[in-house]
Design a protein around this nucleic acid. Structure first.
Lengths: 207, 207
DNA sequence: GCGCGATAGTGAACGGCGTTCATTATCGGC
DNA sequence: GCCGATAATGAACGCCGTTCACTATCGCGC
């Protein structure tokens, strides 16, 4: 019972990540199991532990990939125009779009919990920070904010967009006048920006 | 093996919810199990299924209680002042406070996933809607918005506050200039409100 | 061509899980 | 003092993550 390098460690890693991704896509994080991955790639569960420390480790690697893929359309949206407000609106729409298009992968990034004490690894934190940094430049241009105020603005605004996506896409916002995700992100961003501009550079409208 | 009403159905229900809550508080949603609940109250796992349809049902009941408890400090914050902006800031701070004070219970409300197809029950949706409705009146007063615009504002703003709480409290916002939760909710609300006011009732400052 | 040490991969096992259900021990009423 | 109803059991089913002694195969030195 050994196929001695029928696949490289690296190939095996990719096979497993691919299989895991597919399982998450089809049945959500809860549908993922070491046994299911093994079944799908024709190995036994034990083999997974030759490549990953444990299932959490594997899931975090899938999430890292997802965050990388999520960054691309957001970058594209920022690159698509020179108007900083449009850049922010576009990035948020790209974010919401990705979340709606790959709900299970996206939710896996934010709903996966490590055991009680353990902190998330740097390679995830870094990738989330990259997303927030994407909006820093447009935000600085549109508001004139800098330093700690700019950090705060980027974090609160992006968290806000994230919150809108979470609550609308998980169906927890089934209330009175249920609004579409993009409608709400647009609302949040335009009003936030208007307020930020009026407070940071009080007397100007440079149209 | 039958103690024939050593406890009422109702008492049993309370015992189970209490035990479940304690387990979630101490070890998170992942630390909850039918066997653990049963062990804690001196019954066997099977008994749980005489009272609840399944574990998900039980968890949803715990979450309903949590949301009820969460509403109280938010209501108090709204009642504590007449200034609508202060009401909104206070409600958000109360929300963040509760989330920080009972992180595992709070996260259970939003991270618990039902099986793939199943939708959340009304008694949860209703309670979330109640939280959003709490901020509708202040929001209407401060902005003059009404109808669909008011709905959108309440939903996007509250979702935003929720997003800030999620990302800061789960440690996913460990970035450049890490900001305190309350600082970010204040930032989000003040700027959003400033923008909302300037767009809804363009030419006025009624201090 | 051959044997041998290294090792990729196995598969059985452990202790846990949610859930079901035939069985039992106890109760209230006759 | 019995008997029907029923609260509660506990064993069972099929899952789970994870570990590890073992084995079947490989590449290498002869």
């Amino acid at each position: 019972m050994a196929r001695r390098s029928e696949h490289t460690r690296e190939q095996l890693r990719d096979l497993m990540l691919e299989a895991a991704e597919q399982l998450i896509v089809n049945k959500g994080l809860a549908g993922l199991s070491a046994r299911a991955i093994a079944r799908q790639i024709g190995y036994t569960p034990g083999t997974i532990y030759l490549v990953f420390a444990n299932l959490d480790d594997l899931i975090l690697q899938v999430n890292a990939r997802t965050l990388d893929r999520l960054r691309l359309p957001m970058q594209a949206a920022v690159a698509a125009t020179d108007d900083p407000e449009q850049q922010l609106l576009g990035a948020a729409r790209a974010y919401a779009d990705f979340a709606r298009g790959h709900p299970n992968l996206w939710r896996a990034c934010f709903e996966h919990r490590l055991p009680e004490g353990v902190a998330g690894p740097d390679f995830i934190d870094t990738r989330i920070a990259q997303l927030v940094e994407l909006i820093m430049a447009p935000l600085a241009r549109v508001s004139g904010a800098e330093g700690a105020a700019l950090d705060a603005a980027a974090q609160s605004l992006w968290s806000g967009v994230h919150g809108v996506c979470i609550l609308t896409l998980t169906g927890k916002l089934h209330m009175v006048g249920g609004q579409a995700t993009e409608h709400l992100t647009d609302d949040l961003i335009t009003h936030y920006l208007a307020g930020l501009v009026s407070r940071t550079s009080p007397a100007s409208s440079r149209a």
